[in-house]
Simulated scan of single mutants.
Amino acid sequence: MSHSLGGGGDLPAVFPDWSPYHDLDSAARAYLRDPDVALESLGGVLRGADVLCFTLERFVNEVNGVWQEVVVCDGNRLILWHGEDVPLGEGPPGSMTSSLRVVPLSTVTEVGCRRQLTRTPSGQAQVGSVDVYLLLSTMDEAAPGGGALEDGERPPVRHDALRFGKTIDDGGAGQIARLEEFARVIASLVGRPTL
């Protein structure tokens, strides 16, 4: 069953599958609501560099509307584009934010990938979900709990991390496989001289 965002321009919460598309342009155009905005932002940074791997995410938040993300690796950098609808009342109807973040691949200190496996009736293992994290050498700017702790204690220092996930219900087997492929490519580059 697909959920929709209320209002005149209802958007389904189940989107087309981007996993069959191995080039960024086709995948973005198949999956994102605002592919031109995303591709223009990413293209300004990529400037013709080869895309080694990418992953896409999109969902509908009942408060803010559509949330979209593209993460691209060119061998030297992770380039993250994020687009999100502005909540009603905080801007004209149809307003959204578009942001870009560039993370040098040299700042990725650890790559983790956790797979949840289930068994079919015949006993074969099947991937039901995958969670990927990229631990960065930079520090997380958000202090847990909103600031200082009692008795003068300092909040714990945490490294920044990028997290991605796909499930059978949210993305399907194709997107799970593509996220695993993304994690393997990033893991193969971490700790090696950059291209």
Rank of each mutant, 00 (worst) to 15 (best):
G7T: 06
T109K: 13
G91V: 06
V132S: 02
D160I: 00
Q116A: 05
G147S: 03
D23A: 02
H3D: 07
H3C: 10
G43M: 09
W67M: 13
D85P: 07
W18T: 03
D169L: 14
E57F: 07
P121G: 05
L42F: 15
D131I: 14
H22L: 13
H159T: 03
V63M: 05
A148D: 06
R154A: 15
R154F: 14
L24C: 09
G44S: 04
A125K: 14
R47D: 14
T118P: 00
D36E: 11
F59G: 02
G75P: 12
C73W: 04
T97D: 06
R47P: 07
V108Q: 03
R115T: 08
M139G: 08
W67V: 13
E69P: 01
P12H: 05
T97I: 13
V108N: 05
R29P: 13
S98I: 07
E62M: 09
G48R: 10
Q175F: 01
D34M: 12
R47L: 09
G7E: 01
F15L: 13
A143M: 12
K166M: 13
P144V: 05
A161L: 05
G89F: 08
T107D: 06
T107E: 05
E40A: 15
T120P: 06
R77I: 10
L24V: 11
Q68D: 06
L117G: 01
A28I: 08
P16Y: 01
D85A: 02
E110W: 07
P104G: 10
E84I: 05
D10N: 11
G83L: 08
L32P: 13
L189I: 12
V185R: 04
L135Y: 00
L134G: 09
E180N: 06
E153S: 13
F59I: 00
A187C: 02
A183R: 01
G65N: 08
L136S: 11
R184L: 11
M96A: 09
A38N: 00
P93N: 02
A28Y: 03
V190L: 01
D34S: 14
P35R: 03
L136H: 08
F59M: 03
T109Y: 01
G94W: 06
V14G: 06
G94F: 11
L135S: 13
G174I: 12
D17H: 10
D50F: 00
F54A: 10
A177N: 12
G83S: 07
L149T: 06
L117N: 00
N76S: 14
A30L: 00
V51A: 04
E153D: 09
S4M: 10
G146P: 10
S129H: 06
L11S: 12
L162N: 04
V70F: 05
A173V: 14
R33M: 04
A49Q: 10
D34Q: 10
V45C: 02
P121N: 12
D23H: 09
H82G: 09
V102A: 03
T109Q: 07
